[in-house]
């Protein structure tokens, strides 16, 4: 035999796999029939659609949009905008998502009503001898809005925006400065340059980590249990498990559901990445392969290989 070590490893893995399958089939705690009966119940499917799929889409849309804005602020010439952007990313990256969601779920304690208007209006009024001056444009009762889905969405989206801002910033900075200069020299405005020249190229750098963020977001919707958001996949599975005292089968069901959903996203990610590598066709790919090859050979890290 040419590779005795390889064959030994295969043999060990085969035994381990057989043991695992044996456990899956023979251990009663799995309750497979019960799991299959329960994992497709209407509230669970509704939770999956609304709390997991729709929530992921909304949180990512909001998070990416806000992330782009913060990244642009971070790269602006204005020191105040830069500082605000830095503070934002610092805060939302420093607080764990789970904690953030618990906080957002309980914001109602801070204000029973949320109102928009002149800050300190009553105090200012008192300064000028006016009692109970109220300059408020509009308001709403926070319990109507800032609970459940909205609180969860806000928590996830604001936190996502901080991570997306860093990703977008790295993407923008990866675009060679000469491109923006050429666009400017052609008379394009700053906005046009960003939209037409810089961002499309930054996409190549932005898309892969954004795909990963989307997958992470889909998984993190399970954290909505702590807001709580009841119309959500994990909340519903957990509820069935607790109600029936069959918690373990429902957690296995959760694993299977998330495996399925993330696998779908992985396929989407593949096609998106292919689309955005336009213009970096055979040559760039060949160059990347070469670089990978050199690395495999233990060759020093090749240069970044300027395009052109």
């Amino acid at each position: 035999m040419r590779h005795p070590g390889r064959w030994l490893a295969v043999a060990v893995l085969a035994v381990l796999t057989a043991m695992f399958v044996h456990m899956l089939v023979t251990n009663d705690a799995f309750q497979w029939a019960f799991m299959v009966d329960n994992m497709f119940r209407p509230p669970i499917i509704e939770g999956l659609v609304r709390g997991t799929v729709v929530m992921t889409i909304c949180a990512m849309l909001l998070g990416v949009t806000l992330g782009v804005v913060i990244a642009v602020m971070r790269l602006s010439d204005n020191p105040i905008l830069r500082a605000v952007a830095w503070l934002y990313t610092w805060f939302f990256r420093a607080v764990p998502r789970l904690v953030l969601l618990a906080v957002f779920g309980n914001l109602g304690i801070l204000w029973s009503r949320i109102e928009f208007g002149v800050p300190f209006d009553t105090q200012i009024g008192r300064l000028f001898g006016i009692d109970n001056l109220e300059l408020r444009a509009f308001g709403f009762t926070s319990r109507d809005v800032l609970t459940g889905f909205m609180a969860g969405l806000l928590g996830l989206a604001l936190s996502e925006a901080a991570y997306m801002a860093e990703i977008v910033r790295a993407g923008i900075q990866s675009v060679e400065g000469g491109q923006a200069e050429a666009a400017t020299a052609l008379g394009m405005s700053r906005g046009q340059t960003l939209r037409r020249v810089v961002l499309p190229q930054a996409m190549r750098v932005i898309i892969p980590p954004t795909g990963n963020e989307t997958i992470a977001m889909l998984k993190d919707t399970s954290l909505l249990l702590y807001v709580p958001v009841s119309m959500e996949l994990f909340f519903q599975l957990d509820a069935v498990g607790k109600r029936t005292f069959q918690i373990f089968p429902m957690y296995v069901a959760a694993c299977l559901w998330y495996l399925l959903l993330t696998s779908v996203l992985l396929v989407g990610q593949y096609f998106l990445e292919r689309h955005f590598s336009r213009g970096y066709g055979q040559q760039a790919r060949a160059r990347m392969k070469l670089r990978g090859f050199a690395a495999e050979q233990g060759g020093g890290g090749g240069g970044t290989g300027a395009v052109g």
Binding site: E176, G178, Q179, E181, A182, Q201, G279, Y280, V307, G308
Partner: peptide, 11 residues
């Protein structure tokens, strides 16, 4: 304006 390094939009 024409630049030393071309600066075409690669995408």
């Amino acid at each position: 304006m024409v630049f030393q390094r071309f600066n075409l939009f690669p995408h």
